[in-house]
Design a protein around this nucleic acid. Structure first.
Lengths: 208, 208
DNA sequence: GCTTCTATACTTAGACC
DNA sequence: TGGTCTAAGTATAGAAG
């Protein structure tokens, strides 16, 4: 019943949840906080989905800071193996174990499983990504074939799908050509395990 | 202000969201509906997490009916391929192993069922793959941008490198566009092209 | 099996610890 | 980094199509 006449503004220390756009959070700190919260929520959703619907769910998340987190019911190893293309099998095995430990309904408080080797890998990945950004300009000059972002944005779902498929084919051709040149230049057999990645990222398309 | 005297109960066609326990939904129908809804929500969360926090996120979900769904930024398809090698024995063994390790939840009985679903999934994936191959022609028509294999073979190392870099940028654009469509679809509740997106692999280039 | 509608239950942005 | 609190934005159970 008592009314706050003197300091009505103090009654609202929080404005509550604000609406936000789904776009990269610029503030590093805010991004980190958001990541922690949403990661927890994300894994919780994964857990609920698997339990409520008896579905198999696996999820892997790499924080912007370089840590790896995972959830899996009944297993997430397949996902992790994909993320460890050029690492030793030892790292893969360890990560796999950790992932399984927090699978199922466990969820508890922490899915925090970090590995030094993973961290190194992620750093390499990030470096690769940055290098890629720098090259975007150069790309335009040589790519008389490639469409502009605007073109891509204009594509219909069907077109995008078709284009994506074509992209994959071209990727294969480029990859093959690169291998060929590598062999010609070095006059050796291929060594995929050690040489690997020049800095080109992956192509991905989510499906529904 | 007319009053509903005769049928007051009609005023509440819905009780709104009810609280539920996080445990397997017994009703097969209800479970299916729940799966559809939550799967969409789950992927949306994954998308938001990756965008808001610049995190790498990958998720795979196998429906109780045996269908596979996935989301990944920047990639997951490759993971699925690992999970679904053409030799079903490998996948089967791996899944079984993973499942047993995690058997602490009394899900043992479920495992056999899930195993069966996996087989169905493998077939679905194969079909999808073939379909993708068939589309490569269509892509040529729609893809007025993409070069022919011959063009790629004719490129100099420098050109190839530049082109590869450009390719990567386009991949990013396509990926972003696809993510956008996913978000729009989920937001609007409209059905996107469905099914077809599974077969896109990753691009890799050895370095000199 | 996926969508729509409605009334809630649940999640989380922002500020602080 | 992870926990707390508030208020508001979202996700979704249930019912029906």
């Amino acid at each position: 019943m008592a009314m706050q006449v003197a300091a009505p503004s103090r009654r609202r220390p929080s404005l509550g949840r604000q609406k936000i756009e789904i776009r990269r959070i610029e503030s590093e700190e805010a991004r980190q906080v958001c990541f922690s919260k949403r990661r927890a929520g994300f894994f919780k959703k994964a857990s609920e989905l698997s339990i409520l619907c008896s579905a198999d769910v696996a999820a892997v998340v790499f924080s912007p800071a370089g840590k790896a987190y995972s959830f899996g019911h009944p297993s997430v190893e397949c996902l992790l193996e994909r993320f460890l293309p050029d690492s030793s099998s030892g790292a893969a095995a360890r990560v796999r174990r950790g992932a399984n430990n927090n699978g199922g309904g466990g969820m508890v408080g922490e899915l925090n499983r970090q590995y030094g080797e993973l961290r190194a890998m992620v750093e390499a990945h990030k470096a690769r990504r940055e290098r890629a950004d720098e090259k975007i300009e150069m790309e335009r000059a040589a790519g008389r074939w490639l469409p502009m972002d605007a073109d891509v944005r204009r594509m219909s779902p069907e077109e995008l799908m078709a284009f994506g498929t074509g992209l994959m084919a071209v990727q294969a051709a480029v990859s093959a050509r690169a291998d060929q040149m590598l062999r010609d230049a070095l006059l050796i057999g291929r060594r995929p395990p050690t040489t690997t990645t020049a800095g080109f990222g992956f192509f991905h398309m989510p499906h529904y």
